[in-house]
């Protein structure tokens, strides 16, 4: 992406404007909140936010609102329809001569529970209709707002309150659903994964997405000290480790063409990441080495493909 024109070259270019008011009800050290705060800086003041149940819904506990932007709260499944309604209303207003800012955008903000599970069917509909909107998923890899229950975004071997680690089961035994690829199959203009520990990459992706009409989809890692059992001050470090171990690849797909925006030459061992979180603590009792190897092998296989296709 370095060859493309951009406002964002270094950390110094992170805009000073804030669209989030301090004093939110979210947990101290919430990675999802950081990712969203940065994303809003790129999206700017003319963003209309649609949100569903999840941690971010706490931004609007009546009569308070933590975003300095219009905020519509709706049910899990109704977010794409709500966004469609707003997009249509903007069109109608413009056709009646109402002067709305050129860069008025509709942004759907949902957690992984809504994106991967409960709202997948309706968002698929919106992608199919090529609805012109932004869709931002803060992926804390479980139902964080209700006490950390398993979702289909929960990674392999993670302990959640509904995928306990016992003598017989090592936590969640399923692999994380590949939402990026599901989205890609819809033939939408822009898809990207982002991480709060790489703010310049994050800002550039939002900047780039603005060129396209149609669905612009973002998957942000949401380090969750409360659910993951990690130290709040380690949030950015853990986020960085997710990227550097290769567990959270940074990539984009423009009309389906995938390109990684950060390609590590060598990967840090997945253990380095897993050890920072209590949800994986059961893996380090000496009895789970095979599973840890399986985890590492899966990550390696992913990157070997990337290295052979993109590092030529």
């Amino acid at each position: 992406m370095s060859s493309e024109p951009t406002r964002y070259r270094t950390l110094k270019d992170i805009p000073k404007e804030e669209y989030m008011a301090p004093g939110t009800p979210l947990c101290a050290g919430c990675g999802a909140q950081l990712a969203l705060r940065l994303a809003l800086k790129a999206l700017g003041p003319h963003t209309i936010v649609v949100n569903v149940p999840g941690c971010v819904a706490l931004f609007a506990i009546y009569p308070y609102s933590s975003l300095k932007l219009p905020f519509v709260f709706t049910s899990f499944v109704a977010a794409p329809a709500t966004a469609q309604g707003i997009v249509d209303a903007i069109k109608v207003l413009r056709s009646k001569g109402v002067n709305l800012p050129e860069d008025t955008k509709v942004l759907v903000v949902v957690g992984d529970g809504a994106a991967y599970d409960i709202g997948l069917q309706s968002s698929s509909g919106a992608l199919h209709r090529q609805l012109d909107h932004y869709y931002f998923v803060y992926d804390n890899e479980a139902y964080g707002n209700t006490g950390f229950q398993y979702s289909s975004a929960t990674p392999f071997l993670s302990r959640t309150t509904t995928s306990e680690a016992t003598d017989r089961v090592p936590g969640n035994t399923f692999w994380k659903k590949d939402l990026f690829e599901i989205w890609r199959a819809h033939g939408v203009p822009y898809i990207a994964t982002v991480a709060a520990s790489k703010p310049v990459d994050l800002l550039r992706k939002f900047e780039k997405a603005a060129r396209f009409k149609g669905p612009k989809l973002f998957l942000a890692l949401g380090v969750c000290p409360t659910g993951w059992g990690s130290d709040p001050q380690m949030t950015v470090k853990i986020d960085k480790l997710a990227v550097e171990t290769g567990i959270w690849p940074l990539k984009e797909a423009v009309y389906g063409e995938v390109r990684h925006t950060y390609i590590p030459r060598s990967l840090k061992p997945v253990e380095e990441y897993l050890r920072t979180q209590r949800r994986f603590a059961h893996l380090f009792d000496g009895k789970h080495d095979d599973l840890l190897k399986e985890y590492q092998a899966r990550v390696n296989a992913y990157w070997e493909k990337v290295w052979s296709t993109e590092l030529k």
Binding site: A21, G23, Y64, S65, L67, K68, F71
Partner: peptide, 14 residues
């Protein structure tokens, strides 16, 4: 529950 004063969450002293 329409909130007209967007960003008034700042009144919460976390």
């Amino acid at each position: 529950g329409l909130i007209r004063n967007v960003g008034n969450g700042v009144e919460k002293m976390t």
